[in-house]
Simulated scan of single mutants.
Amino acid sequence: MKNILSNPVTDAVVDLNVTPSNLTTSGTTHFRSPSIVSLRRTLSLPTGAADLAVTRDTILVHARQLPAAPRVMNSLCRLLQDVRTNLDELAAEIRIEPTLASKVIQLSNNAVFGGGTRVGSIDEAVNRVGFGEVLRLVGAATVAGLVDRALGCYGVTAERLRESLLFHGLASEALAVYADVDSRTAYSAGLLRGIGIMVLDRAGRLRVTGADVFDPQRFAVYGEWEKARFGVSGVEVSAIVMEEWRFPADLVNALRSHLLLDEADYENRFAVVLNLAGAIVAEHCQALPGDAVCWEVTPEKLAAAGIEEAQFRTASERVATIFNQQRKALY
Rank of each mutant, 00 (worst) to 15 (best):
L192H: 01
D182A: 14
V156K: 00
S172Q: 05
E133P: 00
L191F: 08
T185S: 13
F167D: 00
R136W: 10
L165T: 05
T185N: 12
L165Y: 06
T185E: 13
L175M: 09
H168S: 10
G169C: 08
D148T: 06
Y178D: 13
D180V: 13
Y154D: 04
A171E: 01
A174E: 10
A158V: 10
D182Q: 14
V177N: 06
G169T: 09
V156H: 01
L191N: 00
V181P: 03
A186E: 06
D182N: 12
L151G: 05
V138I: 10
T157S: 13
F167P: 08
L175N: 00
A186H: 03
C153N: 12
L166D: 02
L135R: 03
D180N: 15
A140Q: 07
S183I: 05
G152A: 15
V181H: 01
L137I: 12
V181Y: 02
V143M: 06
S183L: 11
G139E: 07
Y154H: 09
A189L: 05
G145K: 01
L175Q: 02
E163Q: 15
V177L: 11
G169D: 07
L191Q: 03
F167H: 09
R184P: 02
V138M: 06
E163F: 11
V138W: 05
G169K: 04
R184L: 12
S164P: 07
D182E: 15
A186I: 13
A141N: 01
T185W: 10
A150Q: 04
A141V: 01
S183M: 14
C153V: 12
Y178G: 07
A150T: 08
S188F: 05
G152L: 12
R184V: 08
A174C: 04
S183H: 14
A144P: 01
